[in-house]
């Protein structure tokens, strides 16, 4: 029981990372980044290359893959997405194109097989008489540090304030002297970097294949829909609820646990179409 509890915390913290990344891009760019899950997958493969083929230590490999794929995300925003002028349909199509390109590249370069990722720490420890694997604890700790860092960055730094201002009202922010183009690229880069960290952690617990991106995308979309698009605190709460169904639900209900999380989201949407803590991103996106 305690074991599942630890698993719930670990999984949920990484879901928070994954979903915060998506919700950041949604709130600034006003479009769902369908390629989010595949950036997560790409990050995990980049990590695999850095740590296994190049033999770098864990921390360095993590940092390099985060920077590499984060830069890729920024590049996609600056060179592709921005040229579409913020209209929903072309942006979604552009993102679906990126999704397919990343998936195809991963299959071509690494093959369609399932792989495992190295863990940060090995071995086990005992907490209150229960044996817990160090891998899961370290994963949870790293996620917690990154989330706290992101939260402080958004809350207290000047750049973070600019990001929040742009998310609230793009035009007003630009009138106040915020470089909204830079902020868009930056938030896409940060969002992608979050996905990469979550990807490296979650695929180390489960497995890695070129097709894990879609399920990661579905999970993060469920979370941000439930929490409200553009709301980071909402994503935090929703990630723990979805994590509940993926850990406790998976152990006690079995195969139907997906239905539980989907059903919960449907019911919440029926009564509150903007999600738990949602603001109306959609009203501005549709113009």
């Amino acid at each position: 029981m305690f074991d599942i509890f630890i698993f719930w915390i670990t999984l949920s913290l990484n879901y928070v990372l994954l979903a915060t990344g998506l919700t950041l891009t949604v709130s600034v760019m006003r479009v769902v980044n369908l390629a989010h899950g595949n950036f997560y997958m790409a990050g995990a493969y980049a990590f695999l290359v850095f740590s296994e083929r190049a033999g770098l230590p864990y921390g360095l490999a993590l940092l390099l893959s985060v920077l590499l794929v984060g830069a890729l995300g920024m590049l996609v925003e600056a060179k592709l997405y921005r040229r579409l002028g913020g209209r929903i349909e072309p942006s979604i199509i552009c993102m679906s194109g990126m999704l397919l390109v990343l998936e195809g590249l991963a299959v071509l370069l690494f093959g369609p097989d399932i792989r495992g990722l190295p863990a940060m720490l090995k071995g086990t420890t005992t907490i209150g008489g229960t044996v817990v694997s160090m891998e899961r604890l370290s994963v949870a700790a790293l996620a917690l540090v990154v989330i706290a860092g992101l939260f402080c960055f958004l809350k207290y730094s000047r750049l973070g304030r600019s990001i929040r201002a742009t998310a609230q009202d793009r035009e007003a922010a630009s009138l106040m002297g915020v470089n909204v183009n830079l902020i868009s690229s930056l938030s896409m880069g940060i969002g992608t970097a979050m996905a990469v960290i979550a990807g490296i952690q979650i695929t180390a617990v489960y497995h890695l294949s070129p097709y894990v991106g879609i399920s990661a995308l579905c999970t993060s979309i469920l979370i941000i829909t439930m929490g409200g698009m553009g709301s980071i605190v909402g994503a935090f709460i929703a990630a723990f609820i979805i994590g509940l169904s993926d850990s406790f639900g998976a152990s006690f209900i079995g195969r139907y646990h997906h239905l539980l999380s989907f059903g919960t989201v449907m019911i919440i949407l029926l009564f509150k179409p903007t999600g738990l803590l949602g603001t109306t991103v959609e009203a501005k996106g549709k113009g």
Binding site: G97, L100, E103, L108
Partner: peptide
């Protein structure tokens, strides 16, 4: 060719 289909379709879409 595994992967080529996704890659080409994505490229075509873009």
């Amino acid at each position: 060719v595994p992967g080529a289909r996704s890659l080409i379709m994505g490229g075509l879409l873009l």
